[in-house]
Write a protein that binds this DNA or RNA. Sequence first.
RNA 1: GGGCGGUUAGCUCAGCUGGUAGAGCGUCUCGCUUACACCGAGAAUGUCGGGGGUUCGAAUCCCUCACCGCCCA
Length: 1036
Amino acid sequence: MEKTFNAAEAEARISKLWLDAGAFRAGANAKPGAPAFSVMIPPPNVTGSLHMGHAFNNTLQDILTRWHRMRGFDTLWQPGTDHAGIATQMVTEREMAANGEPTRREMGREKFVARVWEQKKKSRGTIIGQLQRLGCSCDWDREAFTMSGAPGAPEGEEGNFHDAVIKVFVDMYRKGLIYRGKRLVNWDPHFETAISDLEVENIEVPGHMWHFKYPLAGGETYEYVEKDAEGNVTFREVRDYISIATTRPETMLGDGAVAVHPSDERYAPIIGKFCEIPVGPKEHRRLIPIIADEYPDPTFGSGAVKITGAHDFNDYAVARRAGIPCYRLMDTRARMRDDGMPYAEAAAIAMAVARGETTLTEAEVDTINLVPDDLRGLDRYEARKRLVEQITAEGLAVTVVRKSIDKETGAEHLERVPYVESKPIMQPFGDRSKVVIEPMLTDQWFVDTAQIVGPALDAVRTGRTKIIPQSGEKTYYHWLENIEPWCISRQLWWGHQIPVWYGLDLAAPDFADDEGDGALDPVEMLRLLGDGGYVTRDARFHCAADFAGVAERFRDDLAALPVPLNAARVVEVADRAAAVDMLAAALAEYETTQDPTRLIYPVWRDPDVLDTWFSSGLWPIGTLGWPEDTPELKKYFPTSVLVTGQDILFFWVARMMMMQLAVVNDIPFRTVYLHGLVRDAKGKKMSKSLGNVIDPLEIIDEYGADALRFANAAMASLGGVLKLDTQRIAGYRNFGTKLWNACRFAEMNGVWEGHETGPAPQPKATANRWIIGETARTLTEVNEALENFRFDQAADALYKFVWGKVCDWYVEFAKPLFDGPDAAETRATMAWVLDQSMILLHPFMPFITEELWGTTGKREKLLVHTDWPDLPVTLIDRDAEREMTFVTTLIDDIRSARAQVHVPVGLKADLVATSLTDEARAAFQRNEALIKRLARVDSITEGAAPKGSIAVTAEGAAFAIPLEGLIDITEEKSRLQKALDKLTKEIAGLKGRLDNPNFVKSAPEDVVMEAQANLEARQDEARKITEALKRLADLS
RNA sequence: GGGCGGUUAGCUCAGCUGGUAGAGCGUCUCGCUUACACCGAGAAUGUCGGGGGUUCGAAUCCCUCACCGCCCA
């Protein structure tokens, strides 16, 4: 054997060994009739690459998986990747730009989607290969993808995940769990799509708060009065305006009202009156009502809030309550709108609405563009700047007096300046695009989460699904109990296109075939096409898995229409505009031909795709073949454990819970293990800009996958932050080497000759019996730790056992034993112990252990499939344990004493036993050889302590090491005195407790007994040390 | 502002249902003792964030304050 394990050379070879053997296949190594153990990998982004978070997360999954597989469970670790809509589209577009390829829009949707598939194929291997380098024992043949089987999927991307997603959408739609609506959503102006609340990061940035005057309509005035807490008037003035504070002046253009709190006496006189928005051309100023609503905080700002329903979430709620129209001001890129009728006309309509003279449908409101002509098409921030200038120029900014002193004359100047507060404001940013999110009123699809959240909550409340650590459950409840509707439509091209088709609404209420002759004359036609006709009316829509499905439903709609429309043929076109054109052409043709068979009814598909989390929400059933009733689904669902980051609890875990329960009425997993974010050694988030990113592949290159894995396991205590330190990884690489060298030592001593794995031997020598017991104890610890997901405790137990027990002591004990009569049983014991070490370490360090397994003996199976031991506790031999504790502490004490009084390490000393109980003598005699070797002792005698010796005590024994002339007497005195001081303190503490009648009375009996025994032992030791000190005093 | 978590040796962290503090790394001293210098032997280091309470006894339970982190507003 080499001196160290060559990870770089061996890992690829061992990986291949496992893969060629099909070692990771679902059910591999399962015992007949064994229970299933299944884990779904949190699918990484298909274009992503492995970062430390993945490495950590997947190490834990692999440990669980390998552990269960070795225990004979029917094990499946399901791998796969996520199509990651926005991220993948972004990556692809970026690469296309870098290559000088045409843009997405130039290409068109179909070509672009094909291009993304190319990208997917290209990058898919990256992260999968990286997971394999980490040693992940997924069933790679089953690799899944959240868009497999989607239209346009190339060869090799078959599968039915797409079918599952579409089926779920259709089913949920039919059950009324999914609806479409114009709602305020988080709009990402960079990607020009809606995103969910969870994809928004709120960050505090420096901002400004402007204060403006909204003049009351018709020059009305009121008395504005401020009072203190006692009701005394502190300020009083007659005002003709209401003061409004805003951080976003550009949204003033869309104001629909000003709101004040109903209890706010200052504004009570003007509730119900109108005020003017101080923006836009003077002659077209809009008036808006002053309303009462609970939302405004009377203590904040002026207490009055402008209500811009289409651009603020709070305002939106107020607007809905009060029936205030929400005017959209921006386009998809968050520039001020530049469409629709001129401002003068739009403002006039809005005025009429505010006065209650007319009402508009939602669709009609959306056509009203209230951006003044001079601001149309401007960026939102440019528009803000200009508006502030315009309002200030008009004198409608609230001002404050500023005092300045002229440096030359010393004269005081008082001037009024606009009141602009500079203060930090919370701003929403897109987590991918990093641009400021704009609340935007758009048509979107929503899951009515309120309807499906109940079972997901119950599953955790009743314990059917357990979340670890438990604090995760609290967070889970808190979020789900306050859940908002989930916006699932995204204005992207890469994803599952929503299975909804739209058709023009031909059921104009005033449309009739006057003559009842089935012939459409121009008059009748005009009713269809004219004002209020299908061209402007909202579309009708139907949902089905495919076009054939919706066509049928549209035919049902048409059947209710008069002749000849009822016979129109349903065809699919690109979009609404195409449909309008085509229908017009078809009607025109009908007019001349009067041939109803040639009438067509064009429908178009919703261009939006589904939120990625909607599809990954089906990962547990989708990867197992649902909606088909596959054997895998029967066997591996619900899954056993989900291991994922706590940051993903809402995004994914909660949604999987809701969706699985809604779709198949079962929990997706029995246990959810949540872990923290991996950070650098100082606890900082790893980020490219900080330059503190640790690349797991570089770590694997340098230290080996096993070292990284063991470090991950050791870090995995419950809760908290995970700080990754390369020094620690190096330490665990050393740990692997330590085991390696123990096996190498065994090899040199013929331990492996003719060795085969077998049951524990039954040796006679105490050291051998002891280490077998220690092995059994460690197994219990590891099992218990893993059952409780305490990877850190399992790793710790293994580290202490292999290094602290096997290498530090047992290997040393074996050296003299190999030269004595117990050599054969010692070889057998060592072989067995090292075998167990490899087995127990395998889930944590699969490469080095598999390599050792293969080189050290004749093995029936690969280690990956070797049985996890089941060792009876009877292997723990209490007598052997006591005896070895005596021996090891004695050796430790002798070494320590020697070192402290500077006895040369190379010197072999004599040892005189000055007092021994029978038990101590027996233990001592049986292990003489070990003590001699490890404590560097030459000869052993019994007798009185010679002059000038150092004293060592042990349980039931006292020893002296005669070293007259060699030792530093002062040093020895101070050593003993120090020990005595410590003992005295302990004795005082123990005595104090035992002398306290309350302690003896109320403490449990065994605690009292233990304290008593402890006191006696300490006192005995103190006596021995005092004697030794006395001898030293005599000497000098 | 609301919720969750944390504060233990120089650093990173263990410490379960209360019985009087541990590990790894780092530091220092010594050592080429025939598995291993990715090693061995030895050593030092803590008013367990502050205050109060419950208890015979508190790092551990309760209250409170301070600071830090995360999530949601």
